[in-house]
């Protein structure tokens, strides 16, 4: 096995990239990655710009190993952790053999040298060769969080708008949502979902402060597409419609909020929502 070669490659990789966090500038040079992996909403792979053939889809175990590797961070993931996640009933030797065979099949499936690096019983998906939508998403959302405090600056505001559009485009749905529910995918799925919802609310407030109601409305509506039970999104939408003179739309949002809460929880809108409703009538 090419352990020494892989160790060398991994060291080379780390020399270029610090271990803590992904250091690439947001969205830099994504086109030159031979492998592109989409996991948000759907699972698909592109090899050299071409959608992977159906043979990839039929390879259940290798595909699942790749998905679990991404779900568990993508780099330096312990073989033991991966095996425990994917084959919890397999004992030590069986788990090791299953992992070795599955990794071999996964590498053969891609045929891209150094794509999957194994070093000291830890597996890494080489970010020099693979672009993964969730990595891009997390870099962008972290970038947006850094921009938010400086949103009063017009240049920063434009950057924030571009980042927000890109985030919404990237987030085609929850992480691996069509692949069924696996315990190992939940943590990342929930973290990404939560980060996007937080970003939509924070970014929307920036546009509200600037009196730019339409972009704020788009963000809040996107939030409600992801989770129609978040009352704060209805409240923000009502404010945006009220302030932009669209009173009928604000009332419609209130009605929808009331219906959703009644249907799901048998509860009335909160006092804050009712106050907003009162402000629409006055």
């Amino acid at each position: 096995m090419g352990v020494n070669l892989e160790s060398h490659n991994l060291r080379r990789l780390y020399q270029r990239q610090p271990v803590s966090g992904w250091s690439r500038a947001p969205e830099r040079a994504t086109r030159d990655h031979p492998v592109r992996i989409y996991t948000l909403g759907r699972f698909s792979i592109q090899l050299h710009g071409v959608a992977a053939s159906s043979k990839h889809a039929r390879q259940h175990r290798p595909t699942e190993l790749l998905q679990a590797l991404i779900a568990l961070g993508g780099r330096d993931v312990s073989v033991e952790v991966l095996s425990q996640a994917l084959w919890p009933d397999a004992d030590g030797d069986l788990a090791k053999n299953t992992f070795d065979v599955t990794l071999h099949r996964l590498r053969r499936l891609f045929g891209v040298k150094d794509l999957l690096l194994l070093c000291d019983h830890r597996l890494t998906l080489n970010s020099d060769l693979a672009w993964v939508d969730v990595w891009s998403f997390e870099r962008l959302v972290n970038h947006a969080e850094r921009l938010l405090p400086r949103a009063g600056d017009p240049v920063v505001t434009r950057q924030l708008a571009r980042v927000g559009e890109r985030l919404v485009t990237l987030y085609q749905g929850n992480f691996l949502e069509r692949e069924g529910s696996n315990a190992w995918s939940l943590k990342l799925r929930e973290r990404l979902r939560s980060k996007l919802l937080r970003h939509l609310l924070d970014n929307g407030e920036v546009w509200e402060r600037l009196g730019e109601w339409d972009p704020a409305i788009r963000l809040y509506r996107k939030g409600l597409e992801i989770d129609p039970l978040i009352e704060a999104l209805y409240q923000r939408l009502m404010i945006c419609y009220r302030e932009s003179g669209q009173r009928g739309d604000a009332l419609a949002v209130f009605q929808r909020c009331r219906e959703v809460l009644a249907r799901q929880f048998h509860i009335a809108p909160s006092p804050k929502t009712l106050d907003l409703y009162s402000s629409l009538k006055s």
């Binding site: 529910s181 315990a183 039970l229 009352e231 929880f265 509860i267």
Partner: peptide
């Protein structure tokens, strides 16, 4: 092991 997601919308 059992896994659940609990989302709190109102407190």
């Amino acid at each position: 092991m059992e896994n659940y997601i609990v989302r709190i919308y109102r407190r």
